[in-house]
């Protein structure tokens, strides 16, 4: 399992992460980010891509 943490002070809800890891991140109807705090190992690459693509560099992945 991997643990995902988004710094919500940094996050500006641009939703770039949604395209890299659609099973983990989504923008809700209020245009705010929602995400799963943990995920299967198989999502590691996608979440890493989401972290890379975040304009605010708000996403961290932990083992």
């Amino acid at each position: 399992m991997i643990t995902i943490k988004v710094d919500m002070d940094k996050c500006q809800h641009y939703g770039q992460c949604v395209y890299e890891a659609p099973d983990i991140f989504k923008l809700n109807e209020n245009n705010k980010l929602e995400y799963l705090a943990s995920a299967d190992e198989s999502e590691r690459d996608n979440v890493k891509s989401a972290s890379d693509t975040c304009p605010m560099q708000a996403i961290q992945v932990f083992d």
Partner: peptide, 8 residues
């Protein structure tokens, strides 16, 4: 401006 979900 705003409406990010829809723009995405």
């Amino acid at each position: 401006i705003g409406m990010k979900s829809k723009i995405n």
